[in-house]
């Protein structure tokens, strides 16, 4: 009962805050939601890997960075639009991720958690630095016309292209929900996530599922890498903030809670854009996620002490 009331209060507060922001500075809410879509779409695959393979992939954003670079040079060579590259990039990234999983992460699955963290951290550094070595720290950007599309409502003008990220986040979220609850493989993956030993006993090939889920997550990351390229310039370190922010969102939502990631990213996206809206506070937007994670920790530890 108390939980229900608390939930209702949270929802009411959130709604009131968004209505207030909508009336006062509508662009903050619009851009906030767009940013939220981007964050959520990148964080969902990390949540999937954490929930089922039980690995925190510190190279998460770096995989996306690699996908973006691959897309950039493929599109440059073939004169192709990055949008057509989404599915091929997803497939290539998935294959690449599967190979990386088999030769490195799989060996560390039985090792202590610390080893896995250091391993994926090493992967992240290796990826960033290989790109740094090959293409230097120069930024690359695709000149695309449709990205600057905008819309007017009354005297309000805002960019519309980034709504594609929201669509993507929705697609990932519902697609995964469908995959995990309706298909046999998805149900097996869910079982492995809940209890690997039990899943092995009933005849599920646990390691095969791990590889599959990792590849699936990387397919989503790869698709986001291609899509990210349409909007943003890329450079070797472009992925690392996304690793941290994704983890922040997954931690806020709680492991295995995909809808939670969506609401957490709305909070993060709107808060960041709220700070960006003022000249004086613009530079501080990037530490919002850190503050959020501290607040979440605090409230959880207080709650833990109460109960």
């Amino acid at each position: 009962m108390a939980v229900k009331r608390q939930k209702a209060i949270t929802w009411a507060l959130g709604l009131a805050a968004s209505v207030a922001i909508l009336l006062w500075k509508p662009t903050v809410l619009i851009y906030g939601l767009q940013t939220a879509g981007l964050y959520a779409a990148i964080a969902i695959p990390m949540g999937l890997v954490l929930g089922i393979v039980h690995i925190v992939n510190l190279a998460h954003g770096e995989f996306m960075m690699l996908a973006s670079y691959a897309t950039y040079f493929a599109c440059k060579a073939l004169g192709m639009d990055p949008l057509f590259a989404i599915i091929p990039t997803a497939l290539v990234t998935a294959a690449f991720g599967w190979i990386i999983f088999q030769i490195t992460i799989r060996r560390a699955l039985k090792a202590p958690e610390l080893n896995q963290l250091i391993l994926t951290f090493g992967l992240a550094i290796a990826f960033t630095q290989v790109i740094n070595l090959m293409f230097t720290s120069q930024t690359y950007k695709m000149p695309l016309d449709y990205v600057s599309a905008s819309m007017d409502i009354g005297d309000l003008t805002f960019g519309t292209w980034s709504f594609v990220f929201i669509a993507m986040a929705m697609l990932f979220s519902f697609g995964l929900q469908f995959f995990l609850t309706k298909t046999t493989t998805g149900k097996a993956a869910l079982a492995v996530g809940q209890n690997p030993r039990g899943a092995a006993i009933v005849g599920i090939d646990v390691y095969k599922i791990y590889g599959l889920v990792f590849a699936l997550a990387l397919a989503l990351v790869g698709a986001m890498g291609a899509l990210f390229l349409t909007k943003s310039a890329i450079f070797p370190q472009v992925g690392s903030p996304f690793t941290m922010k994704s983890f922040c969102l997954v931690a806020m939502a709680g492991v295995g809670n995909i809808p939670g990631i969506l609401s957490a990213s709305i909070l993060l996206g709107v808060a960041e854009n709220f700070l960006r809206a003022f000249r004086g506070t613009r530079g501080w937007a990037d530490i919002v996620f850190f503050v959020l994670i501290i607040v979440v920790i605090m409230s959880r530890s207080l709650k833990g002490r109460k109960s």
């Binding site: 391993l119 951290f121 090493g122 992967l123 550094i125 630095q129 290989v130 740094n132």
Partner: peptide
């Protein structure tokens, strides 16, 4: 890019 060596070494 000398850091790549350390990344690989850690792995």
């Amino acid at each position: 890019g000398h850091l790549v060596v350390y990344g690989l070494m850690i792995i």
